[in-house]
Amino acid sequence: MTRKRKLWMRLTMLSLFMLIFVAPVILMFLKSVSFGWSWPDWRPTQFDLRGWRVVFGDPRIFSSLWNTILIAGVVVMLNFIIATPAAYALSRFHFRGKAIIESLLMLPILIPVLAIAMGLHLTMIRLGLTDQVLGVIFIHLLPTLPYAIRVLKSGFDRLKNEWEEQGAVLGANSQTVFWTVMVPLMTPSIRSTAVLVFVISLSQYVLTAIIGGGTVSTLPMIYYPFFTSADEAVIASFSVLFALLPIMFLILFEITLRVYLRVIKRP
């Protein structure tokens, strides 16, 4: 392939990617700030923030927003606390029954979570975990943990044992090595895990509805009734809010990571 043709191909492919993956989201954003944009206009004619004002004027949305962020944040933290040792053990040690444990950990990906939630419903009622945030957090671990363990395990797989050993022979104990060598080298996997888990938790409607029983109000609980409402700018604004949350989470997480690296870097 000649260089010129390759450059041209690259541009085409990149534009194709943008067109497929990014352009629809931009359209949604335009919808949320437009005024009276309806069929058959192919582009907005007037702009207005009314949709956004309605979304932020609704007090239910504010409290649900807080609930959603709280639940997703705790779910992300719990995922790291549980998945990191599990992934480390699966990646580094060979033990009897490892294959079985790995398959068991895959099950929540393979069995529809709806089935598990319906099955657990009565048990959770008995345990008193329904209709409260704690139960919702617990049930959100089901669809997230398998992914977290998978992503972190492949991160550990890629990280050679020698990095830890290098830290150890330089005199750092295993805990220090973990925080000063492993965590920085694992940032891509850590970032992927955090965002993936956050988005999955944010996207749960049916699990929250069953276990939360309508008492625990998260954003999706309000979104579904909104969807049928006729006001397109409002529903578009609400949708953009959903798309913004993970992006804001990613930025926040990235800042935290950078600050952390800065702290451990000092010579």
Binding site: E162, W163, L170, G171, T180, L185, L261, K265, R266, P267
Partner: peptide, 23 residues
């Protein structure tokens, strides 16, 4: 080791002083 295994997130000076800081 066979490979230098310099910690990629640290500068040369930070690499060299790693053992002094965390040892």
């Amino acid at each position: 080791f066979q490979q230098p295994l310099l910690f990629p997130h640290l500068t040369i000076l930070e690499n060299v002083t790693y053992g002094l800081k965390y040892g």
